[in-house]
Amino acid sequence: MLDAWLQIFKRDLLIAFRRRSEIIHPLIFFVMVISLFPLAIGDDKVLLQKIAPAIIWVTALLATMLSLDNLFRSDFEDGSLEQMTLLKTPLSLLVTAKITAHWFITGLPLLLITPLLAVLLYVPTEMISMLLLTLLLGTPTLSLIGAVGIALTVGLRQGGVILSLLILPLYIPVLIFATLALQNSAQGFSAEAQLAMMLAILVLAITLSPFAIAAALKVSLN
């Protein structure tokens, strides 16, 4: 079972490496949207500093959602998904391999580029580690929840817009706790409670969403 998990994980990393544009595009989107804000608001250091966590988090949320588009689409279209349901390893386990690989391909680069963007928005240096921590705890949850939506819409032609209707409301708790954690720590308070909540949501998502994703994929195959 673990072997099949590793095979899918390695396969997806290899495919992503051979189709690099799909890694890079959401990242460019992330950078571009974030740079729109100073252009729209003006070079107002105090204001930008204040809303930087919100900007980074909302944009990260959208970038994650966009990047998920191809999570199951190619497997669905080329028939690999059908073959995966015939394997000994349960589909709910295999999808976690895909999502883990996907997070390494899209979530991790997003994290790595965030310090740079934080500087553009005048985020104080001591805040950056907290920003990264919230992203580290939050983006896997976004991937897991988003994967449910993707699994439900993978067979649809106008899946993109519907996907956002399905999953954006479900993203709200993560957004709220992440930004609260950042605001608290900016004011010198402890952010432990919010981070603990984010961790709890992540654990919940890891436990439950694979089953929802597998069930949704099977519905989409129908």
Binding site: R11, I15, D78, G79, S80, E82, L86
Partner: peptide, 18 residues
């Protein structure tokens, strides 16, 4: 039962990038 099936359908089930 399903693990014992070899299925070749309309879709080839192979990855273009491999």
């Amino acid at each position: 039962y399903s693990q014992n099936i070899s299925y070749v359908g309309h879709k080839n089930g192979i990855k273009d990038e491999l």
